[in-house]
Design a protein around this nucleic acid. Structure first.
Lengths: 152, 152
DNA sequence: ATAATTTATGTTATGTTATAACATTACAAT
DNA sequence: ATTGTAATGTTATAACATAACATAAATTAT
């Protein structure tokens, strides 16, 4: 899978800033740092990796709650997502555009891909309705191999 | 959501026994105990809950590896599934009938429902193909409220 | 039968992921 | 100035999971 371009990255960071500004969400220094660490990585990042990076950036040890709080903020506002199957976090490249987001995760190169297929969303929705079930959130994580890696 | 009947339960346990017998899989005492704990519960069970129950049953303390090994065996053979979004395990009521299994999990009553909808499976499959992606395993966990709980 | 091999379990320790609880700071509103 | 609120710092620990090595039990080969 290909990783994101610098311009996409910039645009996404900018969009998050805009969303925060217009919704009066405090995008504090730490929250911004954590977001940038996550979004700039094209692979899922673990909380304790973020912790190390934050500690390095600021030249002082940070603690788990600091990181988890920032992550919570970012998830709540749809700027990052958690991949439950691998206890890792990924940035969202179309923040606020959708609540749910599905993922393809390559086991080999570890690069992930967001995939917000409407027909898939519909299908899940129909399945829920068919079971008289009201969805509050959906975890869909597809693990496997991307084109590049399956060709190697 | 309604919980499973005793006869369904018996049938499932019997089926697992048969599968083990015909495939020469060692359904040892511990593995059987862990399986029964998981399948008899109509809610997802946590590993350390199983640990407590096993310790009680056998009147001696068990240790985490014992439980996790049994769980691994049961997952490998498709007798139980892990719900990554809540770090819990659930029994499978149609072992070996399918590799993938999707879940509806009620946040209120905590009862889960397996849902092996073929059209959903197809849709996921198509999404993967469309992204040139080869699936090895899929996590689909839909959290929300079941009919009973959303009416309350 | 018995030695060798494999499969499963016991045991200790530790690694990894996440949160509770309470103190402190920063900044805004009255 | 004082109170309120939102965010962060700090310590400790809870919750989830596995590594590594020892032992035992079952299987197979001789």
């Amino acid at each position: 899978m290909k990783s994101k371009s610098t311009s996409e990255l910039k645009a996404t960071i900018h969009k998050v800033e805009e969303i925060c500004k217009s919704n009066k969400l405090g995008l504090t220094e730490i929250r911004r740092q954590v977001f940038e660490i996550i979004i700039k990585n094209n692979k899922p990042v673990k909380a304790y990796e973020i912790l190390d990076k934050i500690s390095n950036i600021n030249n002082k040890p940070s603690h788990p709650p600091t990181v988890y709080r920032a992550i919570d903020f970012l998830i709540e506002n749809g700027f990052v997502h958690k991949l439950n199957s691998i206890n890792s976090f990924v940035g969202c490249f179309h923040p606020k555009a959708h609540k749910e987001c599905y993922f393809l995760i390559c086991k080999k190169c570890n690069i992930y891909q967001e995939c917000c297929d409407d027909s898939l969303k519909d299908r899940i929705s129909k399945t829920a309705i068919h079971n008289n079930f009201v969805i509050s959130n959906t975890t869909l994580e597809i693990e496997g191999h991307c084109l590049d890696c399956s060709q190697k």
